[in-house]
Design a protein around this nucleic acid. Structure first.
Lengths: 219, 219, 219, 219
DNA sequence: TATGAATGAGTCTTCATTCAT
DNA sequence: CATGAATGAAGACTCATTCAT
């Protein structure tokens, strides 16, 4: 397709970017991959589309990463894991009480989302859903570090009478994710649906904290 | 041309299913499509895989639906819309107070999920996420019927002092979806992660209602 | 495609034509085939397009003719041969002199063309051109009956001093065809090109006769 | 997915032609396309057959041209137009009188035909006949340059008494084409029909000029 | 007599991947 | 360091053909 659409100008370098920028090229490809992944899903993303997103030749993707799967692995190692670290870090600093733990999770997740806008869609599609390409990642490397730690602490707190006894401590972790990552993944659609351009990250966080704090507050 | 010369000897009919079962075949194909859609995402689902899921020849899919997009449309018309109806119906019966509205939504969604197991993953991938194939469906046909109605009622209740004033009535709709559809979409992974085969639909519903009722119940 | 586009209404007969009209159906199919053949060429004509041109089910074509090739043979036998007969008949009635022979050919061809509008395009594409599907027809069954007879008579006339000695009697046959069938095959395009809606069959015949009679008539 | 697991062992490069011969390959493909077009007609020519005519993989055709239609366009731009130029050039050089104009056309067409053997069949099938793929080419780019110019000059000459008054100047253009391109398109068949291997391009030209000069020369 | 269902082969096109330069 | 050339496999879709009814 490349050959057919743009006239082949041999030896002339495509404009816009200096030659020989070595490792930056790699970074650019990883970013392009993430953009495509979160836009269309990993399985539906072709190497061609990543290459054209990055403005390079498809063969270059093989040159740097060797393989579709190896590219995916590199994206995980060099980008996705860092994003999870952003969520995990504040949890380590939080002292034992549930309030600060939850607040740490909610704001840590908010930070991660604003720093890595591709995170919610990628997570929802590729980790949460059956058949997602990154499920094993969650189970092997994230779960022990975040959800299981949280669930354990919630269970302990509940045992100490510090948490609504009708909640399931494990499902509470799920609920927390459903109240943070999930709304972020659908942000554009909510905004459009409710004509709610005024809802920003802060408003979301406050709403979530309020809901967790007192529930609906029904009479 | 070669094919014209040697007379084709048709292969013996595949075992397992009687031929000529007419419209049932169509239904089977719709089901197979839904299974594949929710497993791999619409964009990544090939007609081949749908056909092989249904145990038929790929050409038969064209025979019944003509084309990839028309199959997708048929799935939406004849399957997905019915699922949304299951969620909407109890809302119409709910009287004005917020408690029964929320309870109606939570249990209606629970019913829909147990009746249509493909719903959560499909919704999350194809409606929620950017680039999803069914986004316009939500905006055009579901949003006016469910989320916007809910948001309006929540806002009214809040104005009447019947709802936690720190909540955003629009985000509350999002939160409700995040507390119902989202956990369902990831059910297998939660179960595996927490070794929680004991968590069933009832447990989930009770946990969710408890959280919505009083929040975390922190001291 | 059929199944996908028009809603299948089982057992209900498509409108427009009474059922069970037996042999007429066959005739209609032959006509439809000729229409498609002359419009797109035999090789590029699908049985589907013939069926839809005739307003019937593709399977019916097999029912009547068994096979793509057998349909083609039937078209030749039952339609094309008759058209050639229209050209040949006046030649048999023409007396020996060249003038009446040529006039017989020109007007016989004109009659055939106006009676069988598909003839010129079919002949040009499928007989004249390399790779045409009806070449053997011409060589086996038409050539001995028309062109070779003409060439022989022209040669005799030339020997008797009754024909321009610079002509090649065999090529003269070719020229005659080129001055009759060929213009007819392109009639629509000539008319459009020269804005010449006024050129009808009579005008064509007169022009051709005039050219053959005296040539360009240059000073 | 199966394909992903077993490592592909590339087949040894086909013999007969060195790899990486760049733009020559493109030319070869254009030639192969023309050969198939004139042999089977454009609509009935598959990319497969073009590729195998050129001894390459079908995917390479897409690599160079992107698409069936773009290949066809390239053939027209880079081959067919050049052939028409060969016919047009001598007409521009011809002085005003009809004799030299006609002689220029006849010999220019003869040159074009001998240089581009695919021209007659292609023209007859794809320009002349209804449904031909290149009709618009003739109307838009060739007609104004050749046929309409000729018709205008013939009409002027006829007005000046220099042309047989019984001829139609527009049809005369048609007759000229019918006496040159048309016989060439059927050359193989005439030769076979009349056992006339002795008829070459020169003989054809002389016959045609003689016919145009004096007609049949009947007593 | 006629047709809906079904299928294998083929066509166009895209894709991942390799290789020589 | 980078890319143009090339290819096999697979995807969407069409087609001729068969068969049971």
């Amino acid at each position: 397709m490349a050959a057919a659409t743009r006239k082949r100008i041999p030896k002339a370098r495509r404009a816009g970017r200096p030659p020989g920028d070595g490792p930056d090229q790699r970074e650019r490809l990883l970013d392009a991959a993430l953009a495509c992944y979160s836009r269309k899903g990993i399985a539906a993303t072709s190497l061609r589309s990543i290459a054209s997103e990055a403005g390079v030749n498809p063969a270059l993707v093989h040159y740097y990463f060797g393989d579709k799967l190896q590219l995916q692995d590199a994206v995980v190692q060099e980008r996705v894991m860092a994003a999870f670290e952003t969520v995990r870090a504040p949890l380590l600093r939080a002292d034992g009480n549930v309030a600060s733990l939850v607040a740490g999770f909610v704001s840590g997740m908010g930070d991660a989302i604003s720093r890595y806008p591709w995170l919610p869609a990628l997570w929802v599609r590729e980790v949460l859903c059956e058949g997602g390409a990154l499920r094993s990642l969650l189970m092997d490397r994230v779960a022990p570090a975040i959800p299981q730690v949280l669930a354990t602490r919630f269970a302990a707190a509940q045992g100490a009478g510090e948490l609504n006894p009708q909640l399931d401590p494990r499902l509470l972790v799920v609920s927390l994710v459903g109240l943070t990552l999930f709304p972020a993944a659908g942000a554009p659609i909510w905004r459009q649906m409710f004509q709610a351009e005024d809802i920003d990250a802060d408003a979301m966080r406050e709403h979530t904290i309020a809901l967790l704090d007192r529930g609906l507050g029904l009479p």
